[in-house]
């Protein structure tokens, strides 16, 4: 066999191997999405799914309106706490954190990333629920904020570190103070990565169940007061999936599908937005 032929065959073989690997990685995800879609769609199309709170067990109908409001509010408040603070810490790490303090913050953040999510629930319970003697949405938000924090700050740091050093030099060489170069040149240049990181953190928070169990607790009534117990989609999935009623199980599937869609839509919107500002 000629040398050239061997090479061509080897090339084909390796290419095929790569395609195979991609398929192996993608198939489980696609199957999972398809599964959630098929199982969730009937429940989602049921009347009142989006607009009404759950009915008592045994009473047909009912929806997850309370949980939609709850997820949006809990994750919203959590993001308001975690995103600005996490972004600032990320900026510090990248621009001023080449030292002991920076290394310590990085280490703590890495430890936080590795913590099981139920630990954040216990944290929220201890700090807010136990002291206020009351389950509340805001305690869930705090728990989720702590969970989001390492994701946000590491994403911010990574995005900023990727901005070429020459950009900083260009700003400073014009006689701009360092803080202004950071805010006016470096952060805008990395905005795409920062926004993506924040949204990833929000998406992760929206899907978490364990931190909500001891904090938001769940609520079958529509509640908007953050100091009261509140429902959330992840809690609906968790609770309804355990109940022996097929319509409620369908509702759990539908709630899971809704979570997936919310996360997907947020991500798509973010990408469109980032692409627009970077043009």
């Amino acid at each position: 066999m000629s040398r050239l032929l061997t090479r061509v065959l080897l090339d084909r073989f390796v290419s095929a191997l790569i395609v195979l690997s991609v398929m192996l990685a993608a198939i489980p995800v696609l199957v999972l999405l398809l599964f959630v879609l098929i199982k969730g769609l009937p429940g989602m199309l049921a009347p009142g799914f989006f607009t009404s709170p759950p009915h008592p067990v045994g009473v047909p109908g009912g929806g997850v309106f309370n949980a939609i409001i709850g997820t949006l509010e809990i994750v919203g408040i959590g993001s308001l706490l975690a995103v600005p603070f996490g972004t600032l810490v990320g900026i510090f790490l990248s621009e001023y954190g080449r030292n002991r303090i920076g290394d310590t913050v990085r280490f703590v953040s890495d430890v936080l990333t590795g913590l099981p999510s139920i630990a954040f629930g216990i944290f929220g319970y201890t700090v807010l629920v136990a002291t206020l003697h009351h389950f509340s949405a805001v305690s869930a938000s705090v728990a989720l904020a702590v969970l989001m924090l390492p994701v946000v700050l590491r994403a911010t740091e990574t995005a900023l570190v990727l901005v070429p050093q020459s950009m900083r030099e260009a700003g400073l060489a014009l006689g701009a103070p360092r803080w202004r170069v950071t805010i006016e040149v470096i952060v805008p240049a990395a905005l795409g990565g920062i926004v993506t990181g924040a949204l990833l953190a929000m998406a992760r928070a929206a899907g978490e169940t364990a931190p909500l169990l001891f904090t938001a607790l769940g609520n079958d009534f529509t509640q908007v007061d953050p100091l009261q117990p509140m429902g959330a989609l992840a809690l609906t999935v968790f609770k309804n999936a355990l109940l022996p009623y097929s319509d409620l199980q369908d509702q759990a599937w539908a709630a899971a599908l809704l979570l997936v869609l919310m996360v997907a839509v947020t991500n798509i919107l973010a990408r469109v937005y980032v692409r627009r500002i970077q043009r």
Partner: peptide, 29 residues
Amino acid sequence: LRRQVGMLFQRANPFPKSIYDNVAYGPHI
């Protein structure tokens, strides 16, 4: 000092901003 002594670098390093904003950045500061 850096306002008095400007610098041009080996690789062009415009800010990822508009043409106008690039030139306007120094005066803006």
